[in-house]
């Protein structure tokens, strides 16, 4: 019988190895799996590549991973946010590698990975520094840049509700990167505000359970 419910956060992150490529959902502070990140800190994996829109702020979430020296590389669109002190400190000291990706290209590279696409052409960044070294093509007079899919070993997600089949719903703007990241990782696990005892209404499911390998209840919001 299919049951993707996990007993606790520690179980959800237990398989994350040193050097793993990790997608972390969220934008700003909405939709960030703070509980799973805390569990990952306790778990101790290091040398991580973190793929996320931002690079954390203050002393929570991704910023805490950076503070504790667990991150080797950040792939993101916007590392510099108000209060992103730990990113800035590690970056200035040359302690982490940074790959800046335009936000739409980041989402689409993740989507391509999840959808089995081998790469795609986007006009975004054509003629700019972020296209340097990449293949380009002109189609109907317009320049495009070839971008490659972005896969991950594990995706850490935050959702509003889940059922035991791993179907997810979201709340407000906390959806952001979570659905697309679910599709692009070998193992996608979501902390959810509420685990539903009954199947979620199929008309309201946003991320179908086929993309999700584990769900764990974590009702706390910072």
């Amino acid at each position: 019988m299919m049951d993707k419910r996990l007993p606790d956060l520690a179980t959800a992150v237990a398989r994350i190895e040193d050097g793993a490529r990790l997608m972390i959902g969220g934008f700003g502070s909405a939709g960030i799996p703070f509980g799973l990140i805390d569990a990952l800190l306790d778990h101790g994996a290091k040398g991580l590549t973190v793929i996320s829109n931002n690079a954390g702020a203050q002393e929570t979430g991704i910023a805490k991973l950076l503070k504790e020296g667990r991150v080797a590389k950040v792939i993101c669109s916007y590392p510099r946010s108000p209060g992103s002190i730990w990113f800035e400190r590690r970056y200035e000291a040359g302690e982490i590698e940074l790959e800046v990706v335009p936000q739409g290209t980041l989402a689409e590279r993740i989507r391509a990975a999840g959808a089995g696409i081998g790469g795609f052409l986007t006009p975004t960044a054509y003629g700019t520094l972020l296209a340097e070294g990449k293949e380009t093509r002109v189609i109907d007079g317009r320049g495009y840049v070839m971008e490659m899919p972005l896969h991950a070993d594990v995706a850490l997600l935050r959702a509003d509700r889940a059922d035991k089949w791993g179907n997810l719903t979201f709340h407000g703007t906390a959806r952001n990167f979570n659905p697309v990241m679910a599709s692009a990782a070998k193992y996608a696990v979501a902390e959810v505000r509420k685990l539903s005892d009954v199947p979620l209404d199929p008309e309201r499911v946003v991320t179908p359970g086929i993309f999700v390998q584990g769900v764990v209840e974590y009702g706390v919001r910072p």
Binding site: S77, Y78, P79, R80, Q103, T124, A125
Partner: peptide
């Protein structure tokens, strides 16, 4: 000063 492109290029 770390660069931060966000959604501007898209």
């Amino acid at each position: 000063f770390p660069p931060a492109v966000g959604g501007a290029m898209d």
